[in-house]
Nucleic acid binder design. Structure first.
Lengths: 164, 164
DNA sequence: CTTGGAATGTCAACAAGGCTGACGTAGTTT
DNA sequence: AAACTACGTCAGCCTTGTTGACATTCCAAG
């Protein structure tokens, strides 16, 4: 109350930050709701979704790469990958250059699931973007990038080469 | 490439939506990283954080209210609440009007933990906001609100009375 | 006023998906 | 030949979600 002259610090009020925190919580739940619903129909969970997403995005990525991106232990990832390979959604090929590495690819079935999941997720994202308008979208991405850990931001930035 | 005249659909490209999805994933991880670190020092997890947050925000709320907000089963919430009550962070008082209800309050110790957690989380949020600038912040909140399920949006909106 | 149903909360048991630690097996590097 | 790296796996634990069964309390209809 004392400091509320129209300073550019106005938007940094504790109460407003708290509201932003809640908004983030609720929004993330909305963000994962559709894929979760779809996945529960198969026998998969959010962990499978993440693996499928990042394999789709970087076909031929190695297990180690995936570990770094997902930030889980290899035991945890392995459990997920095993079921995906067994069910024929992911293909794990021994590397040529270095035969210790496994390169991961989605099979046709894997691509189908990925498409189904990301269609749903993109639909919600697209709707939110449309309602909020282009300006809001730019701000949204700006804030998100500053909220993640720096190494992840670098990772995101790397994939933006050739966007324009 | 073909459709890239400055249409207002430009920002709805599938590839851009995919990037926004990843940004959301990484940002949420950053968003929870600091509290998670703090909580692992005590014997608590993210579920405890959520309970403490919403009890702080609505002192005297009932278990049922909390269930609706958190979107978990009462059994799941109960486990968390039990440990918080046992450890003296939360006070659970039998309702006067309806003695089936339990009204939840943070104790002094509970408020202390809440403060520690939210200080960390707000610090990151504040930093991201400062780097992104006020315009970006407005857009950020706009998009988040459109991404959550409508009932949650109503819930958020209700607490914004008297902001201005 | 009693009795049956709805609302609220607790206890028990299970599953998913994180984690650590230990170990095996190739393949690569020095 | 030795050491290191990438990957897989076994065993066991924790958190946090789930269902099912049950106790308590309230309220409303008979």
């Amino acid at each position: 109350m004392a400091e509320a002259h129209s300073d550019n610090l106005l938007f940094l009020t504790d109460e407003q930050l708290r509201r932003a925190i809640e908004a983030m919580f609720f929004a993330y739940r909305g963000f994962t709701a559709d894929p979760d619903r779809i996945l529960s129909g198969y026998d998969y969970g959010r962990a499978h979704h993440r693996a499928v997403h990042f394999i789709h995005r970087s076909p031929g990525t190695t297990v180690n790469n995936l570990l770094a991106i997902l930030g889980v232990t290899k035991q945890s990832l392995n459990r997920v990958l095993r079921t995906l390979v067994e069910d024929g959604l992911v293909d794990s090929r021994v590397g040529n250059r270095d035969r210790r590495e496994r390169h991961l690819f989605l099979t046709a079935a894997g691509e189908t699931l990925e498409r189904e999941l990301s269609d749903a997720q993109r639909a919600r994202m697209r709707a939110a973007f449309r309602e909020a308008g282009p300006n809001a979208v730019a701000g949204f991405r700006e804030v998100l990038e500053h909220m993640m850990d720096p190494e992840m931001r670098r990772h995101i930035a790397a994939t933006r080469e050739g966007e324009r």
